[in-house]
Design a protein around this nucleic acid. Structure first.
Length: 879
RNA sequence: GGGCGCAUAGCUCAGUUGGUUCAGAGCACUUGGUUUACACCCAAGGGGUCGGGGGUUCGAAUCCCUCUGCGCCCACCA
C-alpha cells in the first residue's frame, strides 16, 4: 500500500468517521458485558459548538473509547436540551426582526415558530460533535421536548403534586422585565453598580415634623405601606405609634418598629415596600401591611404611579428625584455602590416581584442526595473533591424550587382551572383525566373540557433535564425496561462546575426519588475554558476561537490533544492555540515514525542483533510501566497526565530511543524478528493513544494490520498489563546517562557523529554491561574497553562512581581538565560533608526509618568512591 | 460580612503518609546541528530562598500560626 508522506487529516477524519458509523461501532444494546454509560450534558438545541463543549465532549469521548477498548459495552447517549429561556429569547428576537410581536401570537402560533426554529438549527451542534470525533450512540439521540421525554416530565409533575410536594405559592420572585419571566436565584447575577442613596423627608401625620429615610429606589415610594424604625433607637421614640405621609402620593402609612432595621445604616429609618423587596415583604407579613404593587410586567409604573404611569422605572427614578427636589422632599444624595441583580440571559435588572408561582418542596427530597455525596459511605464521587464543600453548602441551605416559568417554550404546567378561585384547579396528565378529577372535586357532572383552562406557564428547563439519565432510557414511563435496568446507574458524568446545582444536584435528587438509586458513580467537573489573559471565553468578548476552524487547521486529533494537554479536572483551562499546534505536531511525529518503520526492507535471513533484542525488551518494560501509570491516572480522572504519559512514551522512549536503537544501517534491511516486534510495539502505542487521537491511530492501524471490519482499532483490545521489569529500566537510565556523557564530549570537542571514537571505562563490580551494545551504537564507539587504570591523554566524564575515557591524542587541554576535575571534586566533597553530618547526628540515625539511613550511607559510599577516582585522575594529569 | 480553596521555573501545572528516586514535567528560552522518518526535526544546556515571616522536628514545598495577594460559593442591610 502506498503511504502518503504527508498526513492529510481532513480526508482521513471524514473517512474514518463514516467507516465507524457504517459499521455501527458506536451503537450499544444491552448484553452480557459490563456496561459503561455516559449521558451527554445536553447542549442547547439551537447552540453552536464552543470551546467549553469541545473540552467537555473530548473528555467524554476519551472515557467512552477507552471503555470500549477495555471490552466494556460502551454507551454514550447524545441529545439536546430545549433550553426554554435561551431558545425562546432567540425565537422572540427572530420574530421581532420579521416585525412580529410575540404577544400578538397565540400559544399554538408561537410554538409553531419555535419548532421551526428548532428544526432549522437543532442538531447543528450534534453534527459538529461528529467532526470532533465523538463516538456517541446516535440512534439513541434524545431531545428534552420529544413526546416521550415530555410525558415523563408531566408524569413526574403530577406525581410530585399528588404527593403534596408541589404547591402553588404567592412569592417574591426574580422577575426579568425584559423576558417577562421569572428567574431562579441561580439565573440572577449580582453586579456592583454605582448608584445613589437619596435622603427623603416624610412628613409626620398631624405635626410639622419630618423624618428622613434613605433609599436607593425613590421611584418605589408609591408602593410604601409603612416606615420602620428600630425599637431600641432612642432617637425615634417620639415617632412611636405615629403615622407618616408618603411624598407625592400622600398615602398615610403607619410607623412600625422592628429590630430588623440597622440603626447604623442611612438614617436608621426604613421605608417598607412589601411588593418590591424581599425583606420588606417579610416585614409586611409580620406587621400585616398592605401590599401595593406599582409595576407592570415590563417594569413600567402602573396606575399607582399616578402621573408616572406607563413610564419605565429608570426614567421615573430620574424624573421623580427632580420632582422631589422641587417640592423640597429631597434632603441630599450620596454616591453609593450597591449590588444589583441582573438576568443571566437578558442582562436586564431584576425586579423583585410578587407573583403566583409553582414550587417544589426540597427539604425532604434533598436528604438522600446529601447522604449520597457527603455521607459516611458516599455512593457518588465528585472529582475534584473540593467541590464537595460547595455542594454541601448549597444542599444544606436549599430553598424550595420555583419550577414555573412565564414562557411558552417548554412543557406546559398540567394544572387545569375550572373556576376563578385560588383552589379551583386540578392537576392531571391530560385534559381528559383533569376533567374526571374536576367533576369529582366540584361534584358537577356537567363540566366539559371547554370549562377547563390549562395554566399558561411552562416548566423550568431543569425540571426536564433533572430526569435526563432516567428519561433517555425511558426509565420514568417504563421503570423496568431492559435499557434502564442495564445502563442505569450510569458511570461518569462530565460537566462544568457552574451547573453543579442547576443540574447535577437535581439529577441526584431525582435519581433517588424515581429510581431509588444514584444516577451516576462519578462526576467529573471540568474547568472553564479561558483565554491566555484568564478571561472567560465568551461571545461578547469575541475571544472564543471558531471550533470548526480550529479543527480544520489543526485536525480534530490535534485540537483534542491541545485541549487535554493542560486541563486538570476542576482547573480552568487557559486555552492557547499553540497547544493545538503541539497536538498536530505530535500527530506528525507518529506518522513519520510509522513511515520510517514501513520504509524498512525486511530480510528474513539475517539474525536479530543483540542491541535490538535488548532494546525491545527495555521498551516492553517501559510500555508496561506506562500502562500502569495510565491506569492510575484514569482512575483519578487525571486525563492530562494520562495523555502526557503516552506522549512521553511515544516521543521519547519509542521515537528517540527505541527506533534509533533498532534502526538498520543506511540502506540495509532489518531482520524479520525485530520488525515484527516493533510493529507490535507500534500497535500497542496506537491502542493506548486511540482514545485521545482516534483518527490518526485508526489510519495507521489500517496499514499495519490485515484488517477486516471486526479488526478496526476502535474495537481492538487494550494491551494486557504484565509486570514491570524495573531493573532493566534502571539499567537503561544509567546507560542513557553514559550516552549523554559521550554526546556532551562530542559537542564540546566538535567531534562529528560520523567519526567513531574509542571508549574505555575503569572496570569495577558495579558496572552492568547489559546495554553496552546500545551505548556503542548510539555513541558511535569503536568499542568499549574495560581497563584497570586511568587512560592518559583522554577526555573523561563520570557517572556515579564510574569513570569513562575517550582517548583524544593532542586534543586535551590539561589546564581546563584540571579545573573541571577540581570543581567536581570540591562539589563532591561538600556533598559528602553534608551527608556525613547527617549520619553523625545520633537523633537522625535513631529517628529516621532504616531505608532513609541506608540511602544516606549509600550516598556516602558513592561520594567516597567518586572522590577517589577524581583524585587519581588529577594525580595522573599533574604527572 | 460568612464559608471554601489557591500561591512551586518565563507560562501552565505535578509533587501521595514530613525522609531513597525531592525540588520535577510539558511548553517557552539559549547553544550546536540538514549524513539515513520527521526543521511540524535532533542533541545539549540554563533557569526556582517552593508568596513573606514565625513555629514544631534530627529533618519542612509538605504539619501549625500569622501576614500578603488572588479565585470561587453563599448572604447581600434600605
Amino acid at each position: 500500500m502506498q503511504i502518503p508522506s504527508k498526513y492529510d487529516a481532513s480526508q482521513v477524519e471524514n473517512k474514518w468517521y463514516n467507516y465507524w458509523m457504517k459499521h455501527n461501532y458506536f451503537h450499544s444494546e444491552p448484553d452480557e458485558r459490563e456496561p459503561y454509560t455516559i449521558v451527554i450534558p445536553p447542549p442547547n438545541v439551537t447552540g453552536v459548538l464552543h470551546m467549553g463543549h469541545m473540552l467537555n465532549n473530548t473528555i467524554q469521548d476519551v472515557l467512552i473509547r477507552r471503555a470500549r477498548l477495555l471490552g466494556k459495552n460502551a454507551c454514550w447517549v447524545p441529545g439536546t436540551d430545549h433550553a426554554s429561556i435561551a431558545t425562546e429569547a432567540k425565537v422572540v428576537a427572530k420574530l421581532k426582526e420579521q416585525g412580529i410581536d410575540k404577544n400578538d401570537l397565540s400559544r399554538e402560533e408561537f410554538l409553531k415558530h419555535a419548532w421551526e426554529w428548532t428544526h432549522e438549527y437543532g442538531g447543528v451542534i450534534l453534527e459538529q460533535l461528529k467532526k470532533l470525533g465523538c463516538s456517541c450512540d446516535w440512534e439513541r439521540t434524545k431531545f428534552t421536548m420529544d413526546d416521550d421525554m415530555s410525558e415523563a416530565v408531566i408524569q413526574v409533575f403530577v406525581d410530585l403534586y399528588n404527593k403534596g410536594l408541589i404547591y402553588r405559592g404567592y412569592r417574591m420572585v426574580n422577575w426579568d422585565p425584559e423576558a417577562k419571566t421569572t428567574l431562579s436565584d441561580e439565573e440572577v447575577i449580582y453586579e456592583e453598580k454605582q448608584g445613589q442613596l437619596y435622603y427623603l423627608n416624610y412628613k409626620i401625620d398631624g405635626s410639622d415634623n419630618t423624618l428622613t429615610i434613605a433609599t436607593t429606589r425613590p421611584e418605589t415610594i408609591f408602593g410604601d405601606t409603612a416606615i420602620c424604625i428600630n425599637p431600641n433607637d432612642e432617637r425615634f421614640t417620639h415617632l412611636r405609634g405615629k403615622k407618616a405621609i408618603v411624598p407625592i402620593c400622600n398615602r398615610v402609612v403607619p410607623i412600625i418598629e422592628d429590630e430588623y432595621v440597622d440603626v447604623e445604616f442611612g438614617t436608621g429609618c426604613l421605608k417598607v415596600t412589601p411588593a418590591h423587596d424581599e425583606n420588606d415583604k417579610m416585614l409586611g407579613d409580620k406587621h400585616n401591611l398592605e401590599v401595593v404593587d406599582i409595576f407592570n410586567e415590563d417594569a413600567s409604573l402602573n396606575s399607582y404611579g399616578l402621573h408616572y404611569e406607563g413610564k419605565d422605572r429608570f426614567v421615573v427614578r430620574k424624573e421623580i428625584v427632580m420632582e422631589l427636589e422641587e417640592k423640597g422632599f429631597l434632603l441630599k444624595t450620596e454616591n453609593y455602590i450597591n449590588k444589583v441583580g441582573t438576568s443571566e440571559r437578558t442582562k436586564a435588572v431584576i425586579e423583585p416581584r410578587l407573583s403566583d408561582q409553582w414550587f417544589l418542596k426540597m427539604e425532604e427530597l434533598v436528604k438522600p442526595a446529601i447522604k449520597a455525596v457527603l455521607g459516611e459511605n458516599p455512593e457518588i464521587k465528585l472529582v475534584p473533591k473540593k467541590f464537595e464543600n460547595t455542594y454541601r453548602h448549597w444542599m444544606e441551605n436549599i430553598r424550595d424550587w420555583n419550577i414555573s416559568r412565564q414562557l411558552m417554550w417548554g412543557q406546559q404546567i398540567p394544572a387545569y382551572y375550572y373556576g376563578a378561585g385560588k383552589e379551583d384547579f386540578v392537576v392531571a396528565e391530560n385534559i381528559e383525566k383533569a376533567l374526571e378529577l374536576a367533576k369529582q372535586k366540584t361534584n358537577n357532572p356537567q363540566l366539559t373540557t371547554n370549562n377547563l383552562r390549562q395554566d399558561k406557564d411552562a416548566l423550568d428547563t431543569w425540571f426536564s433535564s433533572w430526569l435526563w439519565p432516567m428519561s433517555v432510557f425511558d426509565g420514568i414511563r417504563n421503570p423496568e425496561n431492559d435499557d434502564i435496568n442495564y445502563y442505569y446507574p450510569t458511570n461518569d458524568l462530565v460537566t462544568g462546575p457552574d451547573i453543579l446545582f442547576f443540574w447535577v444536584a437535581r439529577m441526584i435528587i431525582a435519581g433517588y426519588k424515581y429510581k431509588g438509586e444514584k444516577p451516576f458513580n462519578n462526576v467529573y467537573l471540568t474547568g472553564l475554558v479561558r483565554d491566555k489573559q484568564r478571561r472567560k471565553m465568551s461571545k461578547s468578548l469575541g475571544n472564543s476561537p471558531d471550533a470548526l476552524k480550529l479543527i480544520e487547521e489543526y485536525s480534530a486529533d490535534g485540537v483534542r490533544v491541545g485541549l487535554l494537554l493542560s486541563s486538570a479536572a476542576g482547573n480552568d483551562l487557559l486555552f492557547d492555540e499553540a497547544l493545538c499546534q503541539q497536538g498536530k505536531g505530535f500527530g506528525n511525529k507518529i506518522w513519520n515514525a510509522f513511515r520510517l518503520i514501513e520504509g524498512w526492507e525486511i530480510d528474513k535471513t539475517i539474525p536479530q542483533p543483540e542491541t535490538s533484542k535488548i532494546g525491545l525488551e527495555w521498551y516492553e518494560a517501559k510500555l508496561q510501566k506506562a500502562l500502569f501509570e495510565i491506569e492510575d491516572h484514569f482512575r483519578k480522572y487525571r486525563l492530562s497526565d494520562a495523555l502526557m504519559t503516552i506522549y512521553k512514551l511515544i516521543m521519547d522512549d519509542f521515537s528517540s530511543w527505541l527506533l534509533e536503537i533498532i534502526k538498520p544501517a543506511y540502506q540495509k534491511p532489518i531482520d524479520a524478528k525485530t520488525h515484527k516486534a516493533v510493529i507490535e510495539a507500534l500497535e500497542n502505542n496506537l491502542k493506548i493513544l486511540h482514545p485521545f487521537m482516534p483518527f490518526l491511530t485508526e489510519e495507521i492501524w489500517q496499514y499495519i494490520t490485515e484488517r477486516t471490519p471486526e479488526q478496526a482499532l476502535i474495537i481492538a483490545k487494550w494491551p494486557k498489563a504484565k509486570s514491570v521489569n524495573q531493573e532493566l529500566i534502571s539499567e537503561f537510565e544509567f546507560a542513557s546517562e553514559v550516552i549523554s556523557g559521550i554526546r556532551n564530549i562530542r559537542k564540546q570537542k566538535n567531534i562529528a557523529f560520523k567519526d567513531a571514537v574509542g571508549f574505555s571505562v575503569i572496570n569495577n563490580e558495579n558496572i552492568k554491561s547489559t546495554f553496552d551494545g546500545v551505548i556503542a551504537k548510539l555513541g558511535n564507539l569503536e568499542s568499549i574497553d574495560y581497563v584497570t587504570e586511568a587512560i592518559e591523554g583522554a577526555l573523561t566524564f563520570r557517572i556515579k562512581a564510574n569513570e569513562y575515557f575517550i582517548p583524544m591524542a593532542g586534543a586535551i587541554d590539561v589546564e581546563a581538565e584540571i579545573k573541571k576535575l577540581t570543581d567536581e571534586l570540591n562539589y563532591t566533597e561538600g556533598f559528602l560533608k553534608s551527608v556525613q553530618k547527617k549520619l553523625s547526628n545520633e537523633r537522625f540515625v535513631a529517628g529516621a526509618p532504616e531505608q532513609v539511613v541506608a540511602s544516606e550511607k549509600k550516598k556516602e559510599a558513592d561520594a567516597l568512591a567518586k572522590i577517589e577516582t577524581l583524585k587519581a585522575s588529577l594525580a595522573s594529569l599533574d604527572a
